[in-house]
Structures are given as C-alpha cells and as structure tokens.
Write a protein that binds this DNA or RNA. Structure first.
Length: 698
DNA sequence: TTAGGGTTAG
C-alpha cells in the first residue's frame, strides 16, 4: 500500500481506513501543537494518506497552521498549500492576507486582496482589518481609500472592528482629519477606536492633538489602558510636556503597570526627551527585563543629550549583557561616534553591521554617511551613499553637507543637481548644505540664486541659518561691506551667530572698522562670549594695533570673561586622548619633547611662528612658547610619535583653529608626508602636501 | 480580525 501511495496523486487514492487515534478536530488537538515545519509535514502527509485532506475545513486548518501558527518568517509552505486549492474561498484568502500582513509582506497581502476582487471571491468582515493594516504599513493612502469604498459597497461601513482599522489606516497615512471624521462618526467607540486615533496622531506628529484627546478621554469617563499611555507618553516626550509625563509615571507606579516593558520604555524615553536623562537612567536600571528596544531607548537618550561617551559606555554594557543590537541601536551609536570623531569605533560598528548582515536602511545608511563625513573620510561617506538601496532627503542632505564641510563644495553642488534630477525635493536643511558649498567654492552669484530659489521654487522661508550662510558667502569673497549691508536688510533680527560670521570674515580680511561694529552688536547680544573678544583682539594684532589688542583682552578680563580653554582630541586604538593648551594630564614631558622636535623640523622648512595669535600680554619669547603649546600642536605631535609613518592623523578641536596652528599644520603635512584631518568648531581642514582644503579661510 | 516602546541631515 505504501508503494501505491507514493506514486499516486492524493486525489485519486482509494479510501484508506482511518487511523482510529486521529481526532475529528485536528485543528486544536494536533495542528496547533505543531512547532516546526517538520511536525506539520508529518500531519500533512497523514492527512493526504487518510484523504482527510479533501475536507475543506481540514485543509483550511492546515493552511492556517502553515501560514500563521508556525514560527517561520517565510510563506513558502503556506503558499504551496494555498496554490493547490482549486477555488480558495474567503476564509482561505483571509488567512493568507493575515499571514502576509503579520510576516511583514504588506504588498503581497494587497495583491491577494486584488486577486479576491478579480476572482469575485466575496469579502467578509475579516477581510478588511488585515488588508487595511497592510495599507498602513505601506503608507498606501490611495489603496486605503479604494478599500474604504469597497467596505461601504459591501455593507461593512458600520462594523466597529472595520471602522477601528480604518481610523488607524487613515491616521497612519497622514490623513489625520479623515481619521478623526471616522472616529467622530461612530455611535460608540471602544478602546481600540481611541487607541487607533492616539497612535495615528502620534505617528503623524500631531502631538498636541494626542494630548488634547487624552484630556477629552479622561473627562468623558472612558477608561484608558497601558496602550493609550504609551502613545500619550510619546507625545509628552516630543512636546517636552513633563507635567503630564510625570502624572502618567505616577499613575503607572500606583497601579503596578511598570512591569510592562513597553510602558516602562515609553516612560524612560519621555524622561530622556524632556531633558531628564538621569531620571531615565534610574528607570532603566530598575527595569526587571530589558529588551533591545529598552537598551536602544536609553542609548538614544544619552545620544540626544550629547552625552556620547555615556552612550558608548552603555552600548558596551549591552554587549556584555549579551543582547544583540539592531539597526535602530546602531543609528544612535553611530551618531555618537560622529559627534566624538571616534572613527575607529565607528568603523568597528560598520564592520559589525556588515558581519551581522543588517539591512542598510535609509536611517542606518544616513547615520553612516554622517559618521564618515564628520570624521573627514568623505570618500567612504560617498561610497556608503552609493551602496544604499533607498535614499531620502536626509541621506542626500547628509552627503551634500558632508562634502561642503570637507572642502568639496563643487562636488556637493553636483550631488544637489543629481538630487533634483532624481526628483527628491530639498528642504530647509538641504539649503544650508548647498549654501555652505557655495561659500567654500566662492560662488557668490550662485549662492544668491540658490537663496532666492528656496522661496520661489520650493516655498521654503529662509531662516537665520540661511542668512548666516549668505553672510559667510559674501564675507569669504572679501565682500565685507556687502555682507554688512545684507545683515542690515535682513527681515528678521540678526542673532549673535550672524554677527560672529561677519566678525570672522573681518579677521580673515583684516577689516578693523566693520569688525568693531560686529563686536559692538555681539557685546550686547552675548556679553560673556570669549571668542568674540579674542577674534577682535586678533584683528587688531594682525594690523599691528597691539595696544588696542591688549585693551580688548583686558576688557575681557575686567568683565570676568574666561577664555574657553582650547582642547584637542585624538583617537588611538579606540581610546580618546585629550590635550589642553599649556597644561596636560598626559605624560607631559613626552608630548612637549615631541612638540619641540616637531617645531624644530618645520622651522627648518620655513615655518615662522605667528605670535599674533598668542596671549598678547606675554613677552615675545613667551608668545612663541604659548603658540607652540596650543592644544592642536600637542595633539598632532602626539599623533606623529604614536602612529606609523604615513598614517593619517585625525584631530578634533573644540574651538576654531588659530592662524599659526593652521600654518604649522600645512608645513607639518609636507615635512612629515602625513595627511592631517583637523575638525574644528566650524569646519574641516584636510592638510595635505603643504596646503589645506579650506583654502585658508575659516 | 482592530490599538503600544527606541533611529537619520543643521
């Protein structure tokens, strides 16, 4: 009998005596117990053998087991069963649509819905919820509306489950008003209706509406649940509404709801977004169970608070805890590496991503572009960009910005052109990159054109940053007077950054008159900013007005303004070393000896110390000593002795680089045949073979 | 069959 079975199609098999133990209701007793494909295969084979397979209910149960109950991520097995059904009915389709939706194949779910329509298989109340959920996932507003029409046509327009998913679909696709209309039109609203609207509001960024709705829910006496609170907490975080956030935290504690991981994570995220990172950390430490989302939320909390070292520390603790990070975790980690200029750590993360075959999502790709761009490896940033399967305005902007900051303005504008050709609409941030590219290349005319196109072509109102870029463009091109006039004509009140940009151009082009005007404005706007006094004093010194320079410095002293100490850092073997001008924690003698040796070498190649940037109240000899001990020189000297010949030296500095260090770095790059990448407060400097990518303007 | 937490460019 076994031989006959193996060679005949199931349909034409002669009846076989049923195995007495096989139950009439295989679904609950056997099919639901199947844990693996192999288990199900055995049952499947048995059903074929006993011809129970011909019973449509049994087939459907088998299909449900294969599609939904098995913990597999693929749908191959389920599809093989479904494809053998001659005329699948609504239930069979519903199972498949539900499974495709659950297993993250929303597009396939919609295709099946379309197939149902084409084959005139009638819809029932179970068809719509999952189909609509797939529309939500795909942000398929158009498809969602078409399905809505079908719902009305088939007479399911008052089914509450269907209406709840409609609310969710509309709100998730950004059609918040329609979602609200559906919600308001319901005679009775259950908790699913309320929560669908909350979630939609939050996902579409309607945070105020979410909070308002929560107050309405409370006054109308409807009971909320944990799911409601998760959505409302997200809104609180975005609005920095700590008052409501604290109320929810208190409610959660009082009702013992803090064991819910989702709610606890939403709470810690709310605290972090409201600026209470330490409170968030305490909550994190108290959590009984922490999953990858909880860890990611805490790491991102540190990252957003710019407490990057703590974020990286927590990331290494996560690995010790043996929890695998995912794409979202990596985005925050990379963002921290970018801020710290920690290229080695960032590269390690990139390798890890590749090793784990993580999907290069738009967000992850953009974080990688930003990492390499901020670490001065702009070519790698471009490579990552080209590797990305999908890109959005963020990725384009990160690259344009990165190219501009790394002194490749022309290339940045080429990518902007390409972006336009690909029909990606630029936004306000994109224009900051485009305008700063114009500034680096010295394209005054084009800069004006781009600035004007913002409003005309794209309806983007220029903000302070854009005006700042224009001042930079004009100032860099030595059009100081024009820059000053431009500021005077601004329709918004210029802030300190605008005047500081003008002041920097005055320093570069030695314009004392307008420099003094800029400082006057700056003193009234930000009287305690030390950098401005130093820039003015440097302008005086650069034209030999030593007394004025000294007077400026003493005015600074009188007002009790302290100069922010210059600090440069270098990363070696994943460890970050920091250097301060003149005083240091690191083995001082070694670093100073190396620095002196380095100065000797570059002097022989024509370096003349420019003492105008030194503390001008010092004696001439001291001045030279002071400039030679600037933090960036110490860090470069340290890099020269600690890395192999030919290795690129990467330094990050907290302030702008001074003229003397800039000049020295150019000569060092030639004498030692090293590339030096120096990231200062404002921009990148790539020193190579005696010149710098900034063309001596910064 | 319907609702929930963490992410990117200045």
């Amino acid at each position: 009998m076994a031989t006959a079975l193996a060679h005949s199609p199931a349909k034409f098999l002669p009846p076989v005596t049923a195995i007495p133990q096989f139950p009439d209701d295989p679904k609950t007793l056997i099919l639901q117990q199947c844990k693996t494909t192999k288990d199900l295969n055995q049952v499947h084979a048995h059903l074929l053998k006993t011809r129970r397979y011909l019973d449509p209910t049994v087939t459907e149960n088998l299909l449900e087991s294969a599609a939904i109950l098995l913990p597999t991520t693929t749908m191959d097995y389920a599809l093989s069963i479904f494809d053998k059904i001659d005329h699948p009915d609504s239930s069979a389709y519903n199972v498949m649509i539900r499974a495709f939706t659950m297993k993250q194949f929303p597009y396939k779910a919609l295709l099946l819905f379309k197939q149902m329509l084409e084959n005139a298989v009638p819809f029932d109340e179970f068809t719509f919820p999952c189909t609509l959920k797939s529309c939500s996932r795909l942000r398929g507003k158009k498809e969602g509306k078409q399905i809505h029409a079908q719902i009305v046509k088939c007479g399911f327009g008052s089914n509450s489950v269907v209406l709840n998913t409609l609310i969710h679909m509309y709100a998730n696709c950004g059609e918040v008003e329609i979602a609200r209309k559906v919600f308001d039109g319901m005679p009775e609203r259950d908790i699913f209706a309320w929560n669908s609207l909350f979630s939609g509001y939050v996902k579409s960024g309607y945070y105020e509406d979410a909070v308002k709705l929560f107050y309405k829910m409370r006054t109308s006496g409807v009971r909320f649940n944990e799911i409601t609170l998760v959505s409302v907490l997200t809104a609180c975080g975005r609005l920095a509404d700590i008052e409501l956030g604290e109320w929810i935290a208190e409610y959660t504690r009082a009702n013992g709801l803090d064991v819910n991981v989702n709610l606890a994570t939403a709470l810690l995220d709310m605290y972090a977004k409201c600026g209470e990172v330490d409170k968030a950390r305490r909550l994190f430490d108290q959590m009984g169970r922490r999953d990858v989302v909880a860890w990611s939320a805490m790491i991102s909390g540190y990252s957003q608070a710019r407490r990057c070292k703590e974020a990286l520390q927590l990331f290494s603790e996560m690995q010790i805890a043996n929890l695998d990070p995912n794409e979202v975790t990596m985005v925050s980690v990379l963002s921290c590496c970018a801020v710290l200029g920690a290229l080695e750590t960032g590269k390690w993360v990139h390798l890890y991503i590749k090793k784990k075959r993580m999907k290069l999502t738009v967000t992850l790709g953009t974080a990688l572009i930003d990492l390499y761009a901020k670490c001065g490896q702009i070519n790698t940033a471009t490579e990552v960009f080209q590797m990305m399967p999908s890109k959005n305005v963020y990725s384009w902007t990160a690259l344009i910005q990165g190219l501009a900051n790394n002194g490749q303005g022309k290339k940045a504008l080429e990518f902007y052109q390409l972006m336009r050709e690909r029909n990606v609409k630029p936004n306000d941030v994109t224009f900051i990159g485009v305008l700063s590219a114009c500034s680096h290349v010295g394209l005054v005319e084009e800069g004006h054109d781009f600035f004007n196109s913002m409003g005309k072509e794209f309806g983007i109102e220029p903000r302070m940053e854009h005006y700042g870029c224009m001042v930079d463009i004009l100032g860099r091109a030595a059009l100081i007077k024009e820059a000053y006039q431009f500021i005077e004509k601004m329709p918004i009140q210029p802030n300190a950054v605008i005047w500081r940009t003008l002041l920097a151009s005055c320093r570069a082009h030695k314009n004392v008159e307008i420099g003094e005007k800029a400082v006057k404005q700056l003193v009234s706007l930000e009287p305690m900013h030390s950098g401005d006094y130093i820039l003015l004093s440097n302008i005086y010194a650069s034209v030999g007005r030593w007394e004025d320079a000294m007077r400026t410095r003493s005015r600074m002293k009188e007002k009790g303004i302290k100069k922010t100490p210059g600090c440069s850092s270098i990363e070696l073997d994943g460890e970050i070393y920091e250097f301060l001008a003149e005083e240091n924690a690191y083995p001082i003698k070694e670093v100073y000896c190396a620095t002196e040796d380095m100065i000797k070498q570059i002097k022989a190649a024509g370096y003349v110390p420019n003492t105008a940037d030194a503390r001008i109240d010092a004696e001439e000899d001291d001045k030279e000593a002071a400039v030679s001990h600037h933090s960036e020189k110490l860090a470069i000297a340290f890099g020269l002795i600690k890395t192999r010949p030919g290795t690129t030296i990467r330094i990050s500095k907290n302030l702008r680089v001074c003229t003397d260090c800039h000049n020295a770095a150019k000569i060092i790059s030639k004498v030692y045949n090293r590339e030096i990448v120096l990231r200062d407060r404002n921009r990148f400097h790539h020193f190579k073979e005696g010149s710098c990518s900034c063309n001596d303007y910064w």
